[in-house]
Design a protein around this nucleic acid. Structure first.
Length: 265
DNA sequence: GCGACAG
DNA sequence: ATCTTGTCGC
């Protein structure tokens, strides 16, 4: 049993070195193996949830959009959370917070973490699993945004990235068939022994004809979820689109809320 | 110095 | 991430 760690929350006022040091603490507190109560088999399938005695687990997708000031410069981040249960949306919340630092590869959670934590606090349901757009363990210090927020809240989490931050796919990932995965291992750029399994390239959708092809998603453990389960979940929740439904809906909701509020303060 | 680099 | 119409294909 691991407690929530609000003391490890992302702080944009830290120096770059302090941020990296905090990330090593996050990685040390993270659990990169299955450690949850719910049955992953009842995640998104409406049929499985109907035959289950318990309520299906609540899965929350999280994504951000950005608002600009009068000069056209991005000055605020809008974090959107879409909670689903048994394939149905049960709640949507969003929060807006000022952007304190620019985007720096490897330090994403310090830029987007505050608005995400604020939005999660507005959520009335207790999520059993968090799905982030970004990396988890596939990170230089094994502490991507999914890992950071997962550890701070002590909620099982998974990172779903559209491109690879670091690490090496074991095999060629071009033109993978739907439903397949290729292991991603750590290399010299990752703070882990070379060859450590840190995630999977997962092909949730693929064209039939060899004309064009869809790139895989890079799925990695955030907290309390192992690499195999993380890949299983991504595949189970991606019904008819490349992105798992909770993340896809959070993505569109982030844009929707942004337009409704309008830009410029 | 060079290369790599989630959103 | 964001700026953005049409367009190719199933």
């Amino acid at each position: 049993m691991s407690p929530p760690r609000p003391d490890l929350a992302p702080d944009a006022d830290l120096s770059r070195e302090e941020m990296e040091s905090l990330q090593r603490e996050i990685a040390a507190a993270a659990v990169f193996e299955d450690d949850f109560e719910f049955d992953p088999a009842t995640l998104g399938d409406p049929l499985a949830s109907a035959s289950s005695p318990e309520d299906p687990p609540v899965v929350a997708g999280i994504d951000q959009s950005f608002l600009s000031d009068a000069d056209g410069d991005q000055d605020r981040a809008l974090s959107a959370v879409v909670a689903m249960r048994g394939g149905e949306v049960i709640e949507r919340v969003h929060a807006i917070r000022p952007l304190e630092i620019p985007y720096i590869p490897g330090l994403l959670s310090f830029r987007e973490g505050r608005p995400i934590l604020a939005a999660l606090e507005d959520l009335s349901v207790e999520p059993d699993l968090l799905l982030f757009d970004g990396s988890g363990r596939i990170h230089f210090r094994q502490a991507g945004i999914a890992t950071h927020i997962g550890v701070v809240r002590d909620v099982p989490s998974i990172g779903i990235a559209k491109s690879l931050l670091c690490g090496d796919p074991c095999e060629d990932t071009a033109n993978l068939p739907t439903g397949t995965r290729v292991a991603v291992e750590s290399n010299s750029r990752v703070d882990a022994p070379d060859g450590t399994l840190i995630g999977y390239a997962v092909q949730t959708r693929q064209y039939d004809s060899p004309d064009r092809s869809i790139n895989p998603l890079y799925v990695s453990p955030g907290h309390r979820v192992g690499p195999e389960t993380a890949a299983d979940v991504a595949l189970a929740l991606a019904s008819s689109y490349k992105l798992p439904e909770p993340v896809r809906l959070a993505d569109s909701y982030a844009d929707e809320a942004k337009r409704e509020i309008g830009d410029a303060p």
